[in-house]
Simulated scan of single mutants.
Amino acid sequence: MLHKTGSRAVEAEGLTTQQWAVLGALSREKAQGGMSIGDLAKYLMVSRQNLSGLISRMERDGHVAVTPDGRDRRSRLVSMTASGQHVWHVLAQPKIMAYYEDVLGDFSINDVTHTLHYLLKMVDNMQRLDAQWVGGGNEAQEET
């Protein structure tokens, strides 16, 4: 539902929820010099493979630029272009904020606080499971 309804909120700008997540990550002060694809994947908690196609489409659309990392030539940095900044700050942000206001409109501050707490707890549990699977602790994964 988040993908479906969130994408509708920004579809006029040609964005999906995945693209808005990338632009949001790149808009942070910490990412002003760009982010490596690996760091961006880790931050968004997605695979590099899934992110690669998304970044290619966003580069084609002019929202991001991919350049070699000056510190490590094997790594590439993703940064927001001027067009991406305009789409993010001017076009998408007001719609995203309105979307969140609609979704959370009947939540009290207490409701939001508890929801965030439990969602973060779920993420921690999923990261713990992921670490176990990556470490070889899941027989089901070994069969695939």
Score class of each variant (00 low, 15 high):
residue 99 Y to C: 04
residue 135 G to Y: 11
residue 71 R to E: 10
residue 70 G to L: 05
residue 63 H to I: 00
residue 23 L to H: 04
residue 128 R to A: 15
residue 102 D to A: 10
residue 129 L to A: 15
residue 18 Q to E: 10
residue 129 L to N: 14
residue 50 N to H: 11
residue 48 R to M: 03
residue 74 R to K: 12
residue 42 K to T: 08
residue 44 L to T: 04
residue 72 D to I: 00
residue 100 Y to M: 12
residue 36 S to P: 04
residue 11 E to L: 00
residue 122 M to E: 13
residue 51 L to P: 02
residue 64 V to W: 01
residue 106 D to H: 15
residue 87 V to C: 07
residue 11 E to H: 08
residue 74 R to C: 00
residue 108 S to F: 09
residue 89 H to N: 13
residue 68 P to E: 07
residue 121 K to N: 13
residue 125 N to S: 13
residue 11 E to S: 10
residue 113 T to F: 12
residue 128 R to E: 15
residue 64 V to G: 01
residue 123 V to M: 12
residue 108 S to I: 09
residue 51 L to I: 02
residue 76 R to W: 07
residue 103 V to A: 12
residue 66 V to S: 04
residue 123 V to H: 13
residue 116 L to P: 04
residue 7 S to P: 00
residue 86 H to S: 10
residue 36 S to D: 06
residue 43 Y to K: 10
residue 47 S to K: 09
residue 31 A to P: 02
residue 75 S to V: 12
residue 40 L to F: 06
residue 131 A to N: 15
residue 61 D to K: 11
residue 29 E to Q: 12
residue 94 P to L: 09
residue 122 M to I: 12
residue 86 H to Q: 08
residue 36 S to N: 08
residue 9 A to E: 06
residue 70 G to T: 07
residue 62 G to H: 01
residue 48 R to G: 06
residue 41 A to L: 07
residue 60 R to P: 00
residue 130 D to F: 14
residue 64 V to I: 05
residue 21 A to W: 03
residue 106 D to M: 05
residue 113 T to K: 12
residue 121 K to L: 15
residue 89 H to F: 09
residue 56 S to H: 02
residue 94 P to F: 09
residue 61 D to P: 00
residue 130 D to R: 15
residue 8 R to V: 00
residue 92 A to L: 08
residue 39 D to C: 01
residue 120 L to N: 13
residue 119 L to P: 03
residue 128 R to Q: 14
residue 31 A to D: 02
residue 71 R to T: 09
residue 109 I to N: 13
residue 85 Q to G: 07
residue 114 H to F: 12
residue 115 T to L: 15
residue 124 D to N: 14
residue 69 D to S: 09
residue 35 M to G: 03
residue 32 Q to D: 09
residue 99 Y to M: 07
residue 111 D to T: 08
residue 86 H to C: 04
residue 58 M to K: 03
residue 41 A to I: 06
residue 103 V to P: 01
residue 42 K to S: 11
residue 39 D to V: 03
residue 37 I to F: 01
residue 68 P to V: 05
residue 115 T to N: 06
residue 98 A to Q: 13
residue 6 G to T: 02
residue 49 Q to V: 11
residue 77 L to A: 04
residue 39 D to W: 01
residue 16 T to N: 07
residue 86 H to W: 08
residue 94 P to A: 11
residue 118 Y to D: 12
residue 55 I to Q: 04
residue 136 G to P: 05
residue 45 M to R: 14
residue 33 G to I: 01
residue 104 L to S: 08
residue 82 A to I: 02
residue 82 A to H: 02
residue 49 Q to S: 11
residue 20 W to T: 13
residue 11 E to Y: 05
residue 109 I to G: 14
residue 130 D to Y: 15
residue 56 S to E: 06
residue 110 N to P: 00
residue 134 V to R: 15
residue 100 Y to T: 09
residue 89 H to I: 08
residue 112 V to F: 11
residue 25 A to V: 02
residue 46 V to D: 02
residue 53 G to C: 00
residue 8 R to D: 12
residue 123 V to L: 14
residue 117 H to R: 15
residue 64 V to Q: 02
residue 11 E to Q: 10
residue 58 M to N: 04
residue 85 Q to Y: 04
residue 62 G to D: 01
residue 78 V to E: 03
residue 101 E to S: 08
residue 63 H to S: 00
residue 49 Q to E: 12
residue 111 D to L: 08
residue 21 A to Y: 05
residue 31 A to I: 04
